[in-house]
Structures are given as C-alpha cells and as structure tokens.
Computed example of a mutant assay.
Amino acid sequence: MLAEQTRDEVFEADVRAQLDAVEAALLRAAEAQTPMVTEAAQHIIAAGGKRFRPLLVALGARLVPGASEQDVIKAAVVVELTHVASLYHDDVMDEARIRRGSVSANSRWGNTVAILVGDLLFARASDIVSELGSEFVRIQARTFSRLVQGQIAETVGPQPGQDPLDHYLQVVADKTAALIATSALFGAKIAGADPLLQQRMIEFGEQIGMVFQLSDDIIDITSEVTGKTPGTDLREGIPTLPTLLARRSTDPADARLLQLLDSDLHDDAALAEALGLLRRHPALVQATAEVERRAAIARGLLAELPAGPARTALEELCEQIVTRSS
C-alpha cells in the first residue's frame, strides 16, 4: 500500500514538473520581435487557466512507456497555443471585455491587434507541431479545420429546418471536443501506443470534451460560487444545453420562462427570475443526465486502457469535471 502511494506521489510530481515546463515553454513560444507584441501574445497565457489540454497530453503519454519528454512538452504547447489563439478570436467576435479575470486583449489593444496576435499564436503552434512529424501536422490541421467550422456554425446559427439542439451539440463537438480529443491522441501517439489505444483516446477525448463544455452550461445556471457570475451566458443570450432543452417544452406552465428567455435579461430582476425557473425546470435534470451519460461513456473507454497511475488520473479527472461547481 505504501509503495503504491509512493509511486502515485512520484507520478503526480512528474506530471506537475512537466506542466511547469509547459508553462515556461508557452511563454517562450509567445515571444515576439517587439515588447508590445510579446506582452499582447503572452497576455492570456500569463492570466493562467486550467491547462486541461496539456494535462491530457501528459497523461496520455504515460499510458505506455517510451514517450520523449521534450516531445510531450512540444505537443502540450501546440494544443494550448491553439486553444489560447482561438480565445483571442472568440473575444473579438463576442466583444468580450474580460478574459480570465483580466481586461481582454481586444479591449486593451483593439480588435485588429487581438486578431493578429491570435494568428501569430496559431503560426507558432504550426511551427512547433512540424517538429513532431507530418502525421502530427495533419492531425493539427484537421483539428484546426473543425475549430473554424464550429465557430462559423455558431456565428451563423442553425440552418432552416435544423434542430437548434443538434446544431449546438455539433458546435460544441467542433469548437471544444475536437481539440481536447487531439490532446488525448497526441500524448498516446508520442508514447508509441498501438492504433487501438490511440483510437480509444480520441473517443475518450471527444466525450470528455463534450462533458467539459456541457457541465459549464449547467454551472452557469446552478452555481452560486463560480469564476463567473451565475447566468452570464443566460444574460448574453448564449444558447446552452439547459436553455435549449427548456425551449423544447410545450407545457403552458413554461410560458413565462420562454418569454424571459426571449427577453433582455440584462435586468437583474428578470435574470434572477429566469435562473429560478430554470433551476426548477425538468430541462436542468435532462441536461445533467446528458452530461452523466457522456461521462459514463468516457469512463467505459478508460476501462479499456492499460491499468496504472495514468489511467487512474484520467478516471479522477473525468469525475472532477462532472462534479465540479466552477
């Protein structure tokens, strides 16, 4: 028992040390020719973050022995740079004022600079991934294609005759789950895992990526202790799983909620009323059930991976995402 505990402590320390190395490498990758551009490019990175994608790379690389330390760091930097670059573009499109508790780059330097900084980080990610080989470049390019198509679909909205919920779930799959799946795959691929294990990591990443975003949707409605004010998405009229499920209701008792969802919720009293109605609505139960269903699929996929501290850590991570409140 003690030996097992010691191995786990060593494992966790190794992963933390690798993520620290990734953090330093991220800042180096964002260095530019002028201090202003460097500051702008490091702005979101320096604000911190969950580093969920680099963690998946690190854990995936530990499922089987043989991963190169430097290649793991490079792959983790690639996926996080890609994620951060997309945030610069998202903030411009959403006219965001705050990002990770700090003034957004578009607010500080303007939309043009924010877009170009995002482009710079995408370019740096492409440069680094080329060092890992052509197969990694191909995967990254296809992932980037999904990210862009997801953003376009979100921007234009559902097409005539398309179910809004189906549209939303596809947007989440492309904008969020795609890069998370690539993160899980990169780790396993660097370790030289067999094709079946790599495929399982892709499938796991897709499911846990969906859980990651859809649980955020629920937190926006339920949490009183979170990094953002409850109802932030609701106030901005951003579609989420609970609101889309609620909109499917034909119950006359839901008329007031549907009216509120179509109204200006920048009024605090109207927002509070909408939150109260949603918290008591069956749609919230349905949304929670969907998150738990996908999490169960993810756990089932993990059960097919080699036993060991990496799989245990992935199982714990899966549980944390489902049960988190912020």
Score class of each variant (00 low, 15 high):
Arg138His: 14
Ile98Thr: 12
Glu224Ile: 15
Leu278Phe: 06
Asn111His: 15
Ile208Arg: 00
Leu271Gly: 03
Gln70Tyr: 07
Pro239Phe: 07
Ala274Asn: 04
Phe212His: 05
Glu319Ala: 15
Val37Ala: 11
Val113Gln: 07
Val172Glu: 02
Val148Leu: 13
Glu80Ser: 05
Ser104Gly: 10
Ile73Glu: 01
Pro252Val: 14
Ser263Met: 10
Ser325His: 13
His89Arg: 07
Asp14Ile: 12
Val77Asp: 02
Asn106Gln: 10
Leu261Lys: 03
Pro54Arg: 00
Thr323Glu: 14
Ala310Pro: 02
Ile321His: 01
Tyr88Leu: 08
Leu55Met: 09
Ala289Trp: 12
Asp174Met: 14
Gln33Gly: 15
Leu258Glu: 03
Ala17Pro: 03
Thr182Met: 10
Gln213Pro: 06
Thr226Asn: 07
Ser145Lys: 12
Thr226Asp: 06
Ala253Ser: 11
Asp251Ser: 13
Ala41Leu: 05
Val10Lys: 00
Leu165Arg: 06
Val172Trp: 00
Leu301Pro: 01
Glu23Lys: 14
Pro164Asp: 07
Ala295Lys: 02
Gln207Glu: 10
Ala253Gln: 08
Ala272Met: 08
Ser102Trp: 15
Leu87Val: 13
Asp220Val: 11
Val15Met: 04
Met1Ser: 11
Pro306Asn: 10
Met210Glu: 01
Gln140Glu: 12
Asp166Asn: 09
Ser183Arg: 01
Glu80Gly: 02
Ala173Pro: 05
Thr143Ile: 09
Gln259Glu: 14
Leu27Asp: 11
His89Glu: 05
Thr155Gly: 08
Cys318Val: 03
Asp166Gly: 12
Thr240Cys: 08
Thr182Gln: 06
Leu132Ala: 11
Gly48Arg: 09
Ile128Leu: 14
Tyr168Thr: 03
Arg235Tyr: 07
Gly308Thr: 05
Leu185Phe: 12
Asp71His: 04
Gln42Pro: 06
Gly209Cys: 10
Ile221Arg: 00
Arg247Ala: 14
Gln33Asn: 12
Leu214Ala: 06
Pro252Ser: 13
Ala105Trp: 02
Ala76Cys: 13
Cys318Ser: 14
Asn111Trp: 06
Arg311Lys: 15
Ala313His: 02
Leu165Gln: 05
Ala298Leu: 08
Ala61Ser: 13
Arg294Trp: 13
Gly110His: 08
Gly118Glu: 04
Ile202Leu: 09
Leu27Val: 07
Leu59Asn: 00
Leu302Pro: 00
Ile202Tyr: 03
Asp233Ala: 09
Asp220Cys: 12
Gly308Ser: 10
Arg124Val: 01
Asn106Cys: 14
Leu258Ile: 06
Leu59Ala: 05
Thr312Asp: 14
Gly237Ala: 08
Val148Lys: 01
Ala25Asp: 12
Leu261Ala: 06
Ala188Ser: 07
Ala246Met: 05
Gly209Lys: 01
Tyr168Lys: 10
Leu116Ala: 11
Gly60Val: 00
Ile221Asp: 00
Arg28Cys: 08
Glu236Ser: 11
Ile208Ser: 02
Glu236Tyr: 14
Ala270Gly: 05
Thr155Trp: 11
Thr240Arg: 02
Ala96Ser: 15
Ala46Lys: 09
Ile128Gln: 07
Pro160Trp: 15
Arg293Tyr: 10
Ala61Val: 00
Cys318Met: 13
Gly192Arg: 10
Ala61Leu: 03
Val37Trp: 04
Ala46Gly: 09
Gly118Met: 06
Ser126Gly: 12
Gln159Arg: 14
Lys50Cys: 09
Thr176Lys: 01
